[in-house]
Amino acid sequence: METLAMHISNGIINGPVAALFAVIALAAMALCVQRGRLDLDDRLAPMAGLVAAFVFAVQMLNFPIFTAGVSGHLLGGAIAAMLVGPWVGALCIAVVLVVQALVFGDGGVAMLGLSITNMAVLGVAVAYLLIALLLRVLPRTTAGLAVTAFVAALVSVVVAAMGFVLQYWLGGTADLGGNLAGLAGTMAVSHLFIGIGEGLITATTVVTVARVRPDLVYALRALKPAQPATVPTVGGVR
């Protein structure tokens, strides 16, 4: 009875649209490698490996949501964007998805471009844009950081889900009888609740790292220049 597959299975989206998104995903990942290299130093590289491993682990932890019989799990875009930045963060999520598809039979290999576009590209991009905005306007406190992480995670999950709806509109294989709105509705509502879980996990993770090693939170480094350790209660002295 365990339904452990969590990503898009083969046959759900037609071949041409899957191929189109494979090209989009490849182009986006190439850009991320190019830009991410500038961020990747001796410290960020192993940290990014840890972020990918952590996202893999937490994605396994399906949590129950509002309605009986439906669960949700972390996508990880906001955690990655916050801890290692948008470029390397997108690559982290992509690595997780590739490992899951190639080794764990989760998500069709032919569907990888669709999933990478939704979770690694859209999810991380939306999360980072919100992080950049919110960290500037919210108070520079632990609460401000937590709210930033929560909101960025929630919104990024809903946007990633809507990415799938767009893909289904373009190349879904079942005839919904013109009822795409129904699919959009269930995806939106379920992912709104999943987004709350994602937000709580993201806020907890980011605040924990910021307390232990604020210097390892990319967003705090990149978005708050000329400020020393920004989370109170932490010495931040190395």
């Binding site: 009875m1 365990e2 399906n62 669960s71 889900a161 992912h191 999943i194």
Partner: peptide, 8 residues
């Protein structure tokens, strides 16, 4: 973890 199918 919950054994139920995820949102997707």
């Amino acid at each position: 973890a919950s054994p139920h199918p995820d949102g997707l």
